[in-house]
Design a protein around this nucleic acid. Structure first.
Lengths: 151, 151
DNA sequence: TTTGAAACATAGCGTAG
DNA sequence: CTACGCTATGTTTCAAA
């Protein structure tokens, strides 16, 4: 789907405040509330907006340990195999195949270091896995996952 | 702040649907709408909930290139210096100091590979920087940033 | 928790580009 | 024909009892 400038402005407002009313959004982008609603509905239907959520402080809700795991797989491993292995684990928050030495990077949230270790062990036991390399987060300096639009 | 089981259930509902009405949340957790509102207000005031947003498909919106950059700094570099350097760059979506060889991992969204390269170059020019190691995302397999609660 | 007023969402309809 | 604004009605929010 193709977004025009109005769609992009609306998404920009919603990224800042996902509960902004249609009238508030309309004031900022120059449309009436019903017009904004129609566009938001269309953005949701088309998949440009995939959902509405809250941003939560991970430490407060109990995800106090965070880390990245690079995984190295056998040459014959497909992305689908990796996905099938990680999507069962709710602690895996994102997974992507990457260029470079590693085959994929996983982002993991766990309740403590022990829990993190258990998750890594379960991943390491997959039969396509050659080795893993973990990096535990010490201080989260910046966290604005998907917080703006390209200029 | 300490969360009880009700708070955790409310956050769970809001993670799935950030626009759920207080009455809908109440139905699922067993409270009246005003009672839910009071709790949500308290969760926001206490910082457990840091905001409301939309989830957006990064590709649709123009962030079609994604990558991770490990940075290696001089021994004397403080986390604050790293933060100061990256928070100016809107393309840096998260930054954390980590254990292991690298000092920090940055998660970056860019509009294309050229743009990504420019961002990495700007980071590399910081005077505390020794070297960087980039991994470009090929396929995003899984993306549920902060999508659930610890069990 | 209930209540009632104000704000909001949302469908229908007419209009302009 | 698509997208807008306006208006009317049902829902939700929210503060006070």
């Amino acid at each position: 789907m193709q977004l025009d400038q109005l769609d992009r402005s609306i998404i920009g407002v919603l990224l800042e405040d996902g509960r902004a009313t249609f009238a508030q959004i309309g004031d900022r982008v120059g449309l009436s509330a019903p017009a904004v609603k129609r566009r938001v509905d269309r953005l949701v239907a088309s998949g440009a907006i995939t959902g509405f959520t809250v941003r939560v402080d991970p430490a407060v809700v109990g995800w106090s340990t965070e880390g990245y795991v690079e995984i190295y797989c056998r040459g014959s491993t497909s992305p689908d195999q990796i996905l099938a292995a990680v999507e069962r684990l709710p602690e895996v928050v994102s997974a992507s195949t990457v260029t470079g030495e590693a085959d994929a990077i996983l982002h993991i949230l766990a309740s403590d270091v022990r829990h993190f270790e258990q998750v890594v062990e379960r991943i390491a036991r997959e039969d396509f896995m050659v080795r893993t390399k973990s990096e535990l987060v010490m201080s989260p300096l910046l966290r604005r996952e998907q917080g703006s639009l390209p200029s």
